[in-house]
Design a protein around this nucleic acid. Structure first.
Lengths: 138, 138
DNA sequence: TTATTTGCAAAAACTTTGCTGATAA
DNA sequence: TTATCAGCAAAGTTTTTGCAAATAA
């Protein structure tokens, strides 16, 4: 990694920059295809594969975060620092939670079965305002 | 649901029973294909589709739990009560965590953005004993 | 008897990858 | 100049589904 960045063995291409900007511009936590649709407006020839490759690349570099929250798709977060999320049961929308990271859980170093703990991930499951309204109407 | 169970509109087939027994017999949290491989030993003609359908069915009925922990596959738990899990970063193995469910997080009813909170899900990410050993050797 | 369930195969949904030409530095 | 990167299309992985035959109750 240190070698890589020293040698500058990666480029800031138009595609990479546009993807990163698109992700940083929103506070939602878009999936790869949502980012693809956004970026496509600026770069109509970009491919979905390129979007996936760059998101993976940026997450590897610690510039962004790949969120493996519940649901069938990965989501991406322009903020690489650990924080908690809520996911809407109905529409799958993901948002940040305004709670600090638990000091208690951060201190856990081992659990039963001899697992060595590296991190923890907390996700709230709920209903977003839009879906609450939709449900009330029904 | 009440109607369904009153009318007994479901059967306890050989396949369903075998799948449930296989899941209850282990404390690992197997994926659908792992359960398929196990059940196949008793019922060689069973199809993967049947395994998926029954796991979904049993989870819907609250008999088992479908775990949407990180990773590309769903995992299943014979214990339907909410509890926390650890997942091994290296091999994906999932185990139960010997921590009580957080009263603090259980009390959270809303978060920023007006989400109505229904539940929470905590997952530790770690390294299982086998993978720790494997890593030390390298 | 008959509504539910199965096996099979095809499809769906999401993501990764091989290859060739393009391009950032 | 050249190693990295993009576009394209094909393939991989996991899960779902349509349909006709089988079966639990």
């Amino acid at each position: 990694l240190a070698e890589l960045s020293k040698k500058r063995a990666f480029r800031m291409t138009e595609q990479r920059r546009t993807i990163l900007e698109a992700l940083r511009a929103v506070k939602t936590h878009p999936s790869a295809d949502e980012i693809y649709e956004t970026v496509r407006r600026a770069l109509p020839r970009i491919s979905l594969g390129t979007v996936y490759r760059n998101l993976e690349f940026l997450a590897d570099k610690g510039v962004i975060q790949k969120l493996d929250v519940g649901g069938s798709q990965m989501r991406f977060d322009g903020n690489p620092k650990n924080h908690y999320h809520v996911r809407c049961v109905d529409c799958g929308r993901v948002a940040d939670v305004d709670l600090p990271v638990s000091r208690t859980f951060e201190k856990v170093k081992t659990v039963a079965d001899g697992f060595e703990i590296l991190a923890h991930r907390l996700e709230f499951i709920g209903r977003c305002p839009a879906c609450r309204r939709r449900k009330r109407r029904r």
